[in-house]
Design a protein around this nucleic acid. Sequence first.
DNA 1: GCCGTTTTCGGCCCGACTGTTTTCAGTCG
Length: 573
Amino acid sequence: MPLVNASVAAIFEEIADLLDIQGANPFRIRAYRNAAQTIGTLGTDLRTLLERGTELTDLPGIGDDLAAKVREILDTGKCRMLEKLHRQVPPAVTELLRIPGLGPKRVRTLWQELDLNTVEQLLRAAKDGRIRGLHGFGPRTEAKILASAQGYLSASKRHKLSVAARYGEQIAACLRSIAGVVQVEIAGSFRRMRETVGDLDVLVVARPDAPVMDRFVKHEGVREVVASGPTRGTVILRSGMQVDLRVVPEESFGAALLYFTGSKAHNIALRRIAREKDLKLNEYGLFRGRETVAGKSEGSVYKALGLPWIPPELREDHGEIEAARAGTLPRLVTLADLKGDLHMHSRASDGHASIGEMAQAAREHGLEYCAVTDHSRRLTVAHGLDSERLRKQVAEIGRLNERMEGITVLSGIEVEILEDGTLDLPDSVLATLDVVIAAVHSKFDLSRKRQTERVLKALGNPHVRILAHPTGRLIGEREPYDVDMQRIIRKAKAERVALEVNAHPQRLDLLDVHCRMAKEEGVLVAINSDAHSSLDFEGLRFGVGQARRGWLEKKDVLNTRPLAALKTWLRRA
DNA sequence: GCCGTTTTCGGCCCGACTGTTTTCAGTCG
């Protein structure tokens, strides 16, 4: 997301929080939150938008007032309304809203009655037993606040998609094994393939006598039971991940799956369409008065709303409903579409398996080709290859291809982009390879201008065919380096270079919004595992998920092409 | 604060669970 957009969105969110604590009109608050959501996920820089002559009021949820505030923030870097609110409510108080179990009403009470501003102060008040005496609070609420404040201070709140998959699929398997359970599905942001997952939402259809909730709360991974009713339960796993379980009737399964898959914005948009048709949509179905119109499957609900089924990865209220109406939804790329993998490592650099073992694993994942792209010499920590070792590796790959059946191994390199934008190996060596991937692994803190120029220069090298993990971020660990992605995408277009969706669970880089930008500019994307061991090809499904969130189709993805077509493209023919 | 073939007012998504209540407010998703 462009930086200015994020700052504007953050200001509107903060205004909404402060208004919420003040007890302002809920719809006014929602207006600020809607605007923050719109701007925060825009994909195009607000300044660019204005330069193009787009009216801010054309954006959904932005009227005259908020458009003026956006301009004020862009022009002055400040927002007078926010400053005024800060004089009424201490800025730190909004952090208390992040504590599970505390909403605006309770935060207001805690602030006004006990003068609590920070999570640390909240923790102390709970320990001292000062909260239980407040009106509307009691000892149990106080204990919950204590626990969730401690949790808040210790844990990070979102989990990588791959980690969520591991826990979620374990729990789903456990639930499926219960007699009387008919159907189990993990919904939520996991099903939408978000790069991180806050908690898992598991849906179950079961006979009334099946002991679903009982088995769920007694699952061996459960650390704490937060809530447990007949149809809804919440637990915290030992890993800190929250899991919500919903038991739903079979005739409502589709409506429930739709509802609990979200996103919230998508659901709200659907409900609005339902209202326009005098229908009511909730997790039990789509209703006209008391009559059930649809609900058993997601498709039935969409159909009754006049829409085709929309893939979960698109459900962000980001144009998918308009596209569905117009019949222009993309036919999203699937895992089965991938014919090869163009980024993997062997023991020669920092991988854990031989080239033969990696190729065999790639073949077992149904791939027709794979490229060995070990690191180049400058990345000494990864035992990067120099020209001579690389030459020997190319020869080894040649011999391997003569005896391997069912898969073709391409020679390649993940070559370092040096600080000045030149590459770590001479052109004469790069010219001998099937595929050259260029990557930044050093000097992450260059200025935006220098970092961008560095990457642009590398893309200009005639041998470079793919830019690896273009933002360099590590999810939850390292921020992306500061580059102008719009310029990089344009340069990739001009040089006919593909951008990578690195499927490594830690990376998922390109981001979804960049995939969409690349598609709009007509730049190809390569979905690569960056495998360092034979197990890492599993990650490809998350890379595909990321690409799907970016609206990519089979034709947008380089490595859906059969080997012959790929080779033609690599030669720039 | 936004929005509009119900357009300048009067709407704005909906239900489960918990704890503190004594019939419901607050929070969450």
